[in-house]
């Protein structure tokens, strides 16, 4: 399930709900990304999506992950709008029969979300606002799966 939300979410609650009633899933991996304060340089993050397109592009990659890693299920929750430091910005959970698939699928999905998913991120701080582009490491991380 893929959902964008302009409201804060609680990663623990999402993981509990995702983990419920699974008798054949042997492994669940999850990742939570948190907005950093950057020692006061970031007062708020602003995340923009392209409604409709962003969900369908993430859906395409989620389908790839399901097949490539043989997942039983996955969950992606991503914040949009204004996000305060300390709030969760993204949550990914993957369920598979065995741990390696769950770990790798989670890693794969996060690498995609960091540098290839249709989001634009602006950092607002005391010195003004600036758009954040992926770092070269983010591109290199995503290229590992090509």
């Amino acid at each position: 399930m893929i959902r964008l939300s302009d409201q804060p979410f609680e990663p623990g609650a999402l993981l509990t709900e995702f983990s419920k009633d699974r008798r054949e899933t042997g492994a669940i991996a999850s990742f939570t990304g948190i907005a950093r304060a950057e020692a006061g340089k970031t007062e708020v993050l602003e995340l923009e999506a392209y409604p409709g397109f962003t969900e369908s592009e993430i859906g395409r990659i989620a389908d790839q992950a399901r097949i490539r890693f043989g997942l039983d299920d996955l969950l992606i929750r991503h914040r949009i709008g204004r996000i305060e430091p300390g709030e969760a910005i993204v949550f990914v959970a993957t369920a598979a029969s065995h741990r390696r698939s769950a770990f790798e699928a989670c890693d794969f999905l996060m690498d995609y979300l960091k540098s290839r998913a249709p989001f634009w991120k602006k950092e607002h701080g005391p010195d003004g606002a600036r758009w954040i582009e992926p770092r070269s490491e983010d591109y290199a991380d995503a290229a590992r799966w090509d």
Binding site: Y50, L113, A117, P118, F119, W120, K121, P134
Partner: peptide
């Protein structure tokens, strides 16, 4: 038509 600059999520 949408113009999409380099993307960055997470």
């Amino acid at each position: 038509v949408a113009f999409l600059p380099p993307m960055s999520g997470g």
